[in-house]
Structures are given as C-alpha cells and as structure tokens.
C-alpha cells in the first residue's frame, strides 16, 4: 500500500472554513476526480485519507498536506501524475490548489506526528518597524515565555520560549509590519496569534499565512513534500 501525498493551498474566502470541512471537501473531490481511495472496513466505511496539522479557521496556507491511501492497482499501467493532479485541481474549490504531488510508502510516521515546526507569515498592525524590533529583541533575549492555555477545561501555564525558533521582519508598512516566524509544534502547537497577543496585547494580526510545515532532523529542515522536488504541473497544462 502506498499513498499519494498532495501539498495544496487554502487561500482567500475559503480560509473561513474549518478543518472538518476541508476533510469533507477532499472526500468529495477525490470521488469527483475518480481516484479509488481505499476505504476502512466495518459497518460504516470511510475513505482513508489523513491530513497534516490542522490549520485554524481563518488562517491561509501554502503548505497544507493530505495523504490519500490507495491500493497498488492504482499505480499500475495507466498511472499518470499529471493527469491525476489535473483532475484533483479541477475537483477542488477555488482557493484550494495543488502545489505538489508525490508517492510515498505508508510505513512512516503520519503527517501529524512527523511535523515539528511551522513557518508563518503574519501581517501585524498596531505597531511600527522600530517598536516591533524592540519587542522581537526582548523576546529573544529572555529565557522563558509563559502562556496561559486552556486544555480540557483547565487553564495551564506553559513555557513556550523554546518553541519560538525564529522571527524576522520581512516588510515594513505604514500601520505595521509583516513578519516571518518559525514556531515549534511540540508538545503542542503554538499559534502565531497567541504568541503575538502574549508578547504585546496591542498587536493585531490582519493576515496569517502558513508557509511551511517542517520535520526537523538535526540542522535539517525537511518539507513533507518539497515543491522543488515534486513540482506541480504548470498552470497552462492544467487548463
């Protein structure tokens, strides 16, 4: 058994749908694209697909992942990655587009377990380049950063400082800045919005875009599916 791993976007209006909605859209889109997904056994069989880390509703992304489990028959004679990709793209709603596609063995970690960090691009308002630079330096010069988080109805105080791997200003705007930040996902996901709110309650986030989901091995940052290694067919072919 192997799986088809797809990297796709969630951009624009569709950012307002939830993770479960995305799953349902995939189930329907794969049927529309005539991809023979394996089904679980039992009284109420479900198609076997699994996702990377859930993206909070309202966030956009250029790095969403889904693994689609397929029987070996699928990879025989007529298998054509480009056609598959074209069909999936046609079936997906606007705002969700395939960026890369690849075939993987299913023996490894699930996507959710494998991802150690996410890279986020965040448009922040209510600050200036200079002010944010001070905030940023203060954050990196301190050893700890405690955040209150709710878990199963209890408020827990957790130190998330080590989950903030990097944070850089990439653009300067009249009313704020755009930053790029890599945040660890273990033991639990740290959302950029929660982090920013914690370090300065005046900050407001206008747009949050997930750029990468990464597996960390030593100094290596590995993408589940790199666009360079598994490029999507160019758009004109898709038309």
């Amino acid at each position: 058994m192997r799986c088809l791993r797809v990297r796709y976007t969630k951009l624009g209006k569709i950012r307002f749908i939830g993770h479960r909605d995305v799953a349902r859209i995939w189930e329907r889109s794969l049927r529309k694209a005539n991809i023979p997904v394996l089904y679980s056994q039992g009284f109420s069989p479900h198609p076997r697909i699994s996702f990377g880390l859930a993206l909070p509703t309202g966030f956009e992304s250029e790095a969403e992942y889904v693994d689609v489990y397929l029987g070996e028959d699928f990879f025989l004679d007529a298998f054509d990655e480009k056609i598959i990709q074209e069909n999936i793209n046609k079936a997906l709603p606007s705002g969700m587009d395939v960026l890369a596609i690849g075939i993987f063995p299913t023996s490894g970690d699930s996507l959710q377990e494998a991802v150690d960090a996410c890279v986020w691009e965040v448009r922040v308002s209510g600050t200036s380049f200079e002010e944010f630079e001070v905030i940023r330096k203060k954050l990196f010069s301190s050893d700890s950063l405690s955040i209150e988080r709710e878990r199963k109805g209890k408020i827990l105080v957790e130190d998330v400082r080590s989950q903030v791997h990097s944070m850089d200003i990439t653009e300067d705007h009249i009313d704020g800045v755009t930053i790029l930040t890599e945040l660890g996902t273990k033991p639990r996901v740290l959302r950029p919005t929660d982090l920013l709110k914690r370090i300065n309650s005046e900050l407001r986030t206008i747009r949050v875009l997930r750029k990468e989901q990464l597996t960390l091995q030593g100094n290596q940052r590995i993408e589940p599916l790199s666009i360079e290694l598994h490029p999507a067919a160019p758009a004109e072919v898709l038309a």
Partner: peptide, 23 residues
C-alpha cells in the same frame, strides 16, 4: 461588502456561513 466582512469574520462563530463559494 466583502472587504468590510472579512475584517471581522474571524471573530464570528462559523464564518463559513457567510462566505458563499459553493459549487
């Protein structure tokens, strides 16, 4: 009204109710 709506849809319960975009 979309530009005005997207400013605050994040703070609204089930924002997907208001976006349209159905097949």
């Amino acid at each position: 009204l979309w530009v005005e709506l997207e400013q605050f849809l994040n703070e609204i319960e089930k924002p997907a109710r208001y976006i349209g975009g159905e097949d």
